[in-house]
């Protein structure tokens, strides 16, 4: 059966993101019942029409779901893996008709591009990169950046994905000694790339020339920060970080996200705002995602919390559905949905 979901409620379509209005609209259930690891949304051309599809990732399968009617999805295709499990989907901005996935155990071992053609009913899988890959990010213009460890150093590579899913062009960025934890594009600056390192530094590259422009120490208040968003304004660089290792030490509560400002010219930085859990909310950050001005995080308590980054406070709290806690949460890249996954293979669409 291709339809494995439940229609929860009937609410009108809304294209503007407003977390206060988030409602559970449907549930996608992977029939295999295996553990969910990730979810994403992308455009896919099916029978000549570009559809906003949902991609679900289980340990050994990636599935493509097409919208049927309001709040219903039909599973169109699944790619199966037998040897190496799926670690994450790598969202590619502005790209349709392909999914990028990272496979591995503790570390990423392979990055593959998955293709499926609805007209020819054919599929293809292309191995894009392999090695000991620590961090990966899909960039605009069909580019993918990854950092991998070789015997003697770390390599930072940009691959441009061709129409057939293979690599069209490869470029190396100037390497750094520290392990890179996450990458982030700088909004509005197509040639700038940020990286966060395990030594609490933020590095800036010029993507066009491969130059390493700056290494900025952001302090040891929060270890192992993950960069979710970066933008440049009036000569300053604003960066939204999350803190998986943060403890409850602020008077205002447990910090989950933080906005910091960096002056790239002087390599000086300072905190602008902490996004904490509301008073009385237990738990801390497990996993999260930022889109536009909204941040969403799964907490250890099993709740999803949403912050308006401009207002500076938490605007919605979504309790787990059923007795299963959330495992991950992602904003949809194709519309105003929030996608939340549970370990049992269920994906909930808000």
């Amino acid at each position: 059966h291709s339809i494995e979901q439940t229609e929860i409620t009937d609410v009108p379509t809304c294209d503007t993101l407003n977390p206060g209005n988030l409602q559970l609209v449907s549930k996608l259930k992977n029939p295999s019942g295996s553990c969910s690891v990730d979810v994403s949304a992308t455009w896919w051309e099916i029978a000549g029409v570009k559809e906003p599809c949902i991609i679900t990732a289980c340990e050994y399968a990636i599935s493509l779901w097409k919208p049927l009617d309001i709040w219903q999805w039909e599973k169109m295709y699944s790619w199966h893996f037998t040897e190496v499990p799926v670690l994450q989907i790598v969202p590619m901005p502005d790209v349709c008709n392909l999914v990028c996935v990272a496979l591995g155990n503790l570390e990423i071992r392979e990055i593959r591009v998955l293709l499926w053609f609805s007209d020819a009913k054919s599929e293809n899988q292309v191995l894009l990169s392999s090695g000991n890959i620590q961090a990966v990010l899909g960039l605009t213009k069909r580019r993918l950046v990854s950092s991998s460890r070789t015997l003697c150093d770390q390599q930072v590579e940009i691959v441009t994905i061709a129409e057939d899913g293979g690599s069209k062009e490869k470029q190396f960025l100037m390497p750094i000694e520290e392990t890179i934890q996450t990458f982030a594009e700088v909004q509005g600056m197509q040639e700038a790339l940020l990286g966060t390192t395990i030594m609490n530094n933020i590095v800036i590259w010029n993507l066009k020339t491969g130059q390493l422009l700056r290494k900025i120490y952001i302090g040891d208040a929060y270890q192992a920060s993950i960069c979710h968003k970066a933008y440049s304004e009036m000569g300053l660089l604003f960066v939204v970080l999350s803190h998986p290792c943060a403890k409850e030490k602020e008077p205002s509560g447990s910090p989950v996200f933080q906005l910091i400002v960096i002056n790239p010219k002087t390599a000086l930085s300072m905190g602008v705002m902490l996004y904490c859990l509301p008073q009385g909310q237990a738990g801390r950050f497990l996993e999260g995602d930022v889109k536009d001005n909204f941040a969403a995080a799964v907490l250890t308590s099993g709740t999803i919390a949403i912050w308006d980054l401009l207002l500076g406070h938490c605007t919605a709290l979504l309790p787990p559905v059923s007795d299963q806690n959330w495992s991950f949460v992602k904003w949809s890249g194709t519309d105003s949905h929030l996608l939340a996954g549970q370990k049992d293979g269920s994906i909930f669409v808000y």
């Binding site: 130059q211 000569g235 300053l236 002056n263 010219k265």
Partner: peptide, 23 residues
Amino acid sequence: CNQADLGPISINWFEELSSEALP
């Protein structure tokens, strides 16, 4: 936050750092 603590700001920081950095 106090902007003065961040030192002199340049709107063209990306171009300036690119011209100063190693090729």
